[in-house]
Lab assay of single mutants.
Amino acid sequence: MGFKLLSKLLVYLTASIMAIASPLAFSVDSSGEYPTVSEIPVGEVRLYQIADGVWSHIATQSFDGAVYPSNGLIVRDGDELLLIDTAWGAKNTAALLAEIEKQIGLPVTRAVSTHFHDDRVGGVDVLRAAGVATYASPSTRRLAEVEGNEIPTHSLEGLSSSGDAVRFGPVELFYPGAAHSTDNLIVYVPSASVLYGGCAIYELSRTSAGNVADADLAEWPTSIERIQQHYPEAQFVIPGHGLPGGLDLLKHTTNVVKAHTNRSVVE
């Protein structure tokens, strides 16, 4: 069995187990497998329904001669939608809004960016022009300005110390501490036991640490421990890039980060 097929099978099995364990909360999309990078042309966006009122959005972007996937989250909030992270750029984010209108038909009224990198804030200006209120932590807003990236308009308070959590509509926002970046936030959907790890969490097929220019490698494993301790009931975990899975993604990420750190020390 090929690795790609095995990865998709694991996603399907995880979703099936969740649907059985929580039949009222989960209505997993039966329309197909989780979209992969090879299936999404740059400039297009796919939506994948995880649970009743919960979707991931998947886009792709060219970077350094390669094409990478990027995940975000959409959560229903009454007759409105909360968006977590842009679709990595203005063109993708405009396509995301169009796809949401086509498939869901509810307005996106608020959006949260989970850290300051372009795959999370690139497209904020498109959201703002569409009347979406954009939010991020003060740290993310400051770092985005320093980096020359787009800056969300509103500040999220109460997320300055490791372990801080605040309720934001249908989700809980959690600051686990520094990891992929010093400002990275985690998003949890309690009604569906869905954990969105953003770039602080890796997919299972990833074996290298990737972009760690703004990471705190020493603190990252401790931050992941905080996530595990705060959300032990999480059933569906979405990484910032690639295929979702279960809580095993947290341990896998820790292993990859520690291996990278150990290699760096040896070198």
Rank of each mutant, 00 (worst) to 15 (best):
G2L: 11
G2T: 05
S7C: 13
K8W: 14
K8E: 14
L9T: 14
L9D: 13
L10V: 12
V11W: 06
V11Q: 06
V11I: 13
Y12P: 03
T14M: 05
S16L: 08
S16H: 15
I17W: 08
I17F: 08
M18Y: 14
M18I: 14
M18Q: 15
A21F: 14
A21H: 15
A21Y: 15
P23K: 10
P23V: 10
L24I: 15
F26Y: 13
D29T: 08
S30I: 09
S31H: 07
S31T: 12
E33F: 07
E33P: 08
E33T: 07
Y34W: 15
S38N: 07
S38E: 10
S38K: 06
E39P: 14
P41I: 11
P41D: 14
V45C: 01
V45A: 07
R46E: 09
R46Q: 09
Y48W: 12
Y48C: 07
I50Y: 05
D52A: 11
G53K: 11
V54I: 07
I58Y: 15
I58H: 15
Q61K: 09
S62Q: 07
S62W: 05
S62G: 14
D64M: 08
D64G: 14
P69K: 15
S70K: 00
S70M: 03
L73W: 00
I74C: 02
I74D: 01
R76L: 11
D77M: 06
G78N: 10
G78H: 09
G78C: 05
D79R: 11
D79E: 12
D79G: 11
E80M: 08
E80R: 07
L81Q: 00
L82R: 03
I84K: 01
T86N: 02
A87K: 00
A87L: 03
W88I: 00
W88A: 00
G89L: 04
A90W: 08
A90F: 08
A90V: 08
K91P: 14
K91E: 15
N92D: 03
A94P: 04
A94F: 13
A94D: 11
A94W: 11
A94H: 13
L96P: 03
L96R: 01
L96G: 02
E99H: 15
E99W: 07
E99R: 13
I100K: 01
E101L: 08
K102W: 11
Q103R: 14
I104N: 04
I104H: 04
L106R: 12
L106I: 13
L106Q: 14
L106T: 09
P107A: 13
V108M: 03
T109G: 12
R110V: 13
V112Q: 04
V112M: 07
S113I: 03
T114K: 03
T114G: 01
T114F: 04
T114L: 00
H117T: 00
H117I: 01
D118E: 07
D118T: 07
D119K: 01
D119I: 01
R120F: 01
R120T: 00
V121S: 00
G123S: 04
V124L: 08
V124Q: 02
V124A: 08
V124R: 02
D125G: 09
L127H: 04
L127Q: 00
L127R: 01
R128Y: 11
R128I: 10
R128C: 07
R128E: 10
A129D: 13
A129F: 09
A129M: 11
A130L: 08
G131F: 02
V132D: 03
T134Y: 00
T134D: 02
T134Q: 00
T134N: 02
Y135R: 00
Y135G: 01
S137L: 15
S137R: 08
S137H: 09
S137F: 01
S137T: 14
S139Y: 09
T140C: 05
R141M: 13
R142D: 14
L143C: 05
A144R: 08
E145C: 07
V146Q: 13
E147L: 09
E147K: 12
G148E: 09
E150N: 05
E150Y: 04
E150P: 02
E150C: 00
T153H: 13
S155W: 07
L156H: 04
G158Q: 09
L159Q: 00
S160Y: 10
S160D: 12
S160M: 12
S161A: 13
S162K: 13
D164Q: 15
D164C: 04
A165I: 13
A165H: 12
R167H: 10
F168G: 02
F168K: 03
G169F: 06
G169P: 06
V171H: 02
E172W: 03
L173W: 02
Y175Q: 02
Y175E: 01
P176G: 03
A178V: 07
A179P: 04
S181V: 03
S181H: 00
S181P: 03
T182C: 05
N184C: 00
V187M: 05
V187L: 05
V189L: 07
V189P: 00
V189A: 05
V189N: 01
P190N: 08
S191D: 13
A192C: 05
A192H: 08
L195P: 05
Y196V: 01
G197H: 01
A200P: 03
A200D: 02
I201A: 02
Y202I: 15
Y202P: 05
E203P: 04
L204R: 14
S205Y: 13
S205L: 09
R206I: 15
R206Y: 08
R206Q: 15
T207H: 12
S208D: 14
S208C: 06
A209T: 08
A209D: 08
A213R: 10
A213F: 09
A213S: 10
L217M: 12
L217P: 08
L217A: 06
A218N: 12
A218Y: 11
W220V: 00
W220K: 01
P221M: 09
T222E: 11
I224F: 03
I224W: 02
I224A: 02
I224R: 01
I224E: 01
E225A: 12
R226M: 11
Q228G: 10
H230M: 13
Y231K: 00
P232S: 10
E233F: 11
A234T: 07
F236D: 08
H241V: 00
G245W: 03
L247T: 14
D248G: 13
K251H: 07
N255A: 12
V256D: 03
V256I: 12
K258D: 13
A259V: 10
H260A: 13
N262C: 05
S264V: 10
V266W: 11
E267M: 11
